[in-house]
């Protein structure tokens, strides 16, 4: 497994944000983490990126236990956070080279990788522009380029389409699906929008900190639209 989350629990004081969450994603799979606002998706991402430490349970990234070998696990991980994490005063190239250095990649190798990443995301002609001057779609592309710079095994994306227009959103969704299908990258994609999920994707439905369903998206949806199934499931759980 590229990503294995086992029996994960986390609480803010008395409030349980995650309650015995378990799922696994195989190499080269696109796994959507679907949940309404407040489901615990961001808490899960904070645990996956070790900004928090779980109260119970374990996380393995590319075979590395995050608690026992955090640096090895983090090195195998690319992350696109929900909020933007670019340095807006730096250029596209400077942002990429800064991140490369944090991963221990410097000099010509950093430049080479940055060029490859920019080409892949179609932002090579913006390399000297400041991040502040990019539109929302291009900023996201830059963040994705950055997350892929060190050839991670697992790509974590936390609601990456928030704030993007329809065209930019569709392009990003398609590109990341392609990365999983052809590049062998394992993707965990958090969202509350069902139209970002293809029937062949893995799907974990999270609600109130618990896993409601996990499996193939097409199988969970059945004959109905996924959105309807999702709304029914979360409504049933929310009912008193």
């Amino acid at each position: 497994m590229s990503l294995a989350v086992t029996d994960l629990s986390y609480a803010f004081g008395r409030r349980k944000a995650l309650d015995h969450v378990s799922f696994a994603v195989e190499p080269g799979r696109f796994c959507a983490l679907l949940g309404p606002n407040g489901a615990g998706k961001s808490t899960l991402y904070n645990l996956l990126t070790r900004l928090y430490v779980p109260d119970a349970g374990s996380i393995r990234v590319a075979g590395q236990d995050l608690a026992r070998h955090p640096r090895r696990a983090l090195a195998r991980m690319g992350v696109v956070f929900q909020g933007q994490t670019l340095d807006l005063d730096l250029t596209v190239m400077q942002n990429l080279r800064y991140f490369a250095a944090l991963q221990g990649i410097a000099g010509r190798e950093a430049t080479r990788r940055a060029e490859v990443a920019m080409d892949r995301l179609g932002i090579a002609d913006r390399r000297r522009d400041r991040a502040r001057d990019l539109n929302g779609g291009h900023r996201r592309r830059l963040e994705l380029a950055r997350a892929l710079l060190h050839d991670p095994a697992v790509l974590l994306m936390d609601e990456p389409t928030v704030g993007l227009d329809a065209a930019a959103r569709a392009a990003l969704v398609a590109h990341v699906h392609d990365l999983a299908a052809t590049g062998g990258l394992t993707v965990l994609w958090a969202t509350h929008l069902t139209d970002e999920i293809a029937p062949g994707d893995d799907l974990v439905i999270l609600h109130r900190g618990r896993v409601l369903r996990r499996g193939k998206a097409g199988e969970i949806a059945g004959t109905r639209p996924l959105e309807q199934t999702f709304l029914d499931l979360t409504a049933a759980e929310s009912a008193p």
Binding site: P70, L74, A75, G83, T85, L102
Partner: peptide, 15 residues
Amino acid sequence: RETGSMRLLLTAPLP
């Protein structure tokens, strides 16, 4: 930390 660059820094594979 709110805008995220601290997050980026803290997820680097270093102590």
